[in-house]
């Protein structure tokens, strides 16, 4: 009983944190690209994964998404100049 309630408590804390991180004004929308999308993107831009900007797998948002090294994350930023701009980062170890 004691162990279970403890576990529930820690889960609740994680959930609150998750909501806070994802809903914060400074955090834009992150999504993991599917393998096909990633391949298409690299072809379209004519680059390799190594040339993309990076994000660590231990990054709070990447952690929430469950991103693994090698995944590409699409970031939809709110931009004061363009309204909305799209950026990509490749997940690296760390």
């Amino acid at each position: 009983m004691g162990a279970l309630s403890n576990r529930n408590k820690s889960l609740a804390v994680v959930n609150i944190k998750k909501d806070i991180i994802l809903n914060h004004e400074l955090v834009p929308k992150h999504e993991i690209l599917s393998e096909e999308e990633a391949k298409k993107l690299l072809e379209e831009l004519n680059i390799t994964k190594k040339q993309l900007p990076r994000i660590y797998a231990s990054d709070p948002v990447a952690k929430i998404l469950g991103a693994k090294p090698g995944d590409i994350i699409r970031i939809t930023r709110k931009s004061p100049t363009a309204g909305e701009s799209i950026y990509y980062r490749v997940v690296v170890k760390g």
């Binding site: 806070i20 991180i21 809903n23 914060h24 004004e25 400074l26 955090v27 834009p28 992150h30 994000i55 660590y56 990054d59 709070p60 948002v61 990447a62 970031i75 930023r77 980062r89």
Partner: peptide
């Protein structure tokens, strides 16, 4: 919690991620 922020860039990076740090 959506609007509250600090001017400490590394604190924000650790707590909210690299993209938040970039915006900050």
């Amino acid at each position: 919690p959506t609007r509250t922020r600090s001017n400490h860039i590394f604190e924000v990076m650790k707590l909210l991620g690299i993209e938040a740090a970039r915006n900050l």
